[in-house]
Amino acid sequence: ALSARLVSLGAVVAAMDVVAKRGGEQPGLARSLVMLLANLTQVDSGVAALLQVGDEKMQGLYVAKLVRSFCRSSSESEEEDIFEHVASILVNISKVEAGRRILMEPKRGLLKQIIRQSDSTNQLRKKGVVSTIRNCCFEADTQIQNLLSLAEYIWPALLLPVAGKKIYSEEDRSKMPPELANALSHEREAVENSEIRQQALEAIYMIVLQDEGRRAFWSVNGPRILQVGYEDEEDPKVMEAYELIGSLLNRDVLFLARFVPK
């Protein structure tokens, strides 16, 4: 109720105005306002205000500004990650169709910028990015070509968190594009957050539900990555998400004799 009241009083517009004009000079204030926006976008009216719904000329401008700031700054380059909570804002706005439409509009190129933050060491960023991709994948039935146009970014973002820690064989890697093969040629830190792994798998599932998405998944040797990742998985919910994709791919071809529930 408080968030909705603040939105009705123009808090989203006021916060964005200050972040845009004084964010660089007053990082502490900018960080606090971004956190406020993350709270305000938990209500529908806050999302609508941030998306600038109803104003055709301005729609998406605030989002573009936040994405630009989110991608320019990172926890590696600053003591305090001023814009890390933009990750939560992106998750909130991508829960609604209008938000997904803005993020996925090819001309804006916002989703591409966001996906490239998926390798951040900041867990809030990483989780937010994967959750945002997953939410955007709800549009896979109409936007599959758009999603696959970002294949070189989207597959690493979704597959590496669920690939396990093992070094993949040369044979396996030879069937992958360089962005996957290179990453899987050495041991990696496991993604400890099970929510990230689960959401990555849910996104993959929505992509492979589409014929075109399924073909693309096979073409990057995605099934093999899931097979290896599944062997290391211990979380029951995440295992279930692997198995859901496995059952879908099994209907195509009985590709994984070993892909059976533990």
Rank of each mutant, 00 (worst) to 15 (best):
49 A>D: 03
9 L>E: 13
69 S>Q: 12
243 E>F: 14
232 D>S: 11
191 V>Q: 12
129 V>I: 03
203 A>W: 03
87 A>C: 02
177 P>E: 01
144 I>V: 15
103 L>Y: 06
136 C>H: 08
123 Q>K: 14
116 R>C: 12
188 R>Q: 11
130 V>M: 03
34 V>I: 15
219 S>Y: 01
197 R>I: 09
113 Q>W: 11
30 A>G: 03
9 L>H: 12
231 E>W: 10
32 S>M: 12
199 Q>S: 13
117 Q>Y: 04
161 P>Y: 00
211 D>G: 07
130 V>P: 00
34 V>Y: 08
186 H>W: 04
233 E>A: 00
179 E>Q: 15
126 K>G: 08
223 P>C: 06
162 V>T: 06
203 A>N: 09
25 E>F: 10
177 P>T: 09
18 V>F: 08
155 W>D: 03
22 R>S: 13
136 C>W: 05
82 I>S: 01
45 S>P: 05
6 L>V: 04
255 F>M: 05
114 I>Y: 10
179 E>T: 14
111 L>I: 08
73 S>F: 10
115 I>S: 04
12 V>Q: 04
213 G>P: 00
73 S>G: 07
25 E>T: 11
11 A>G: 07
138 F>A: 13
12 V>H: 06
49 A>L: 00
25 E>C: 11
121 T>K: 15
162 V>E: 02
238 V>S: 01
259 F>I: 01
230 Y>K: 06
223 P>M: 09
210 Q>E: 13
123 Q>T: 15
159 L>S: 06
173 R>H: 01
236 P>V: 09
197 R>A: 08
179 E>I: 03
142 T>F: 05
174 S>T: 07
123 Q>Y: 09
33 L>Q: 03
247 S>R: 15
94 S>I: 01
1 A>M: 12
99 G>F: 04
253 V>L: 12
44 D>I: 00
249 L>S: 00
127 K>Y: 02
160 L>P: 04
138 F>V: 08
259 F>A: 07
114 I>A: 07
148 L>Y: 06
28 G>L: 09
43 V>Y: 00
33 L>E: 01
144 I>T: 14
177 P>F: 05
202 E>F: 06
174 S>M: 08
218 W>N: 05
64 A>R: 11
193 N>Q: 09
142 T>E: 15
182 N>F: 12
15 A>F: 10
96 V>T: 13
5 R>A: 15
107 K>I: 02
77 S>C: 02
248 L>Q: 13
210 Q>Y: 01
210 Q>W: 00
223 P>G: 08
238 V>W: 01
236 P>L: 00
112 K>T: 13
178 P>N: 05
7 V>T: 11
28 G>E: 11
122 N>C: 14
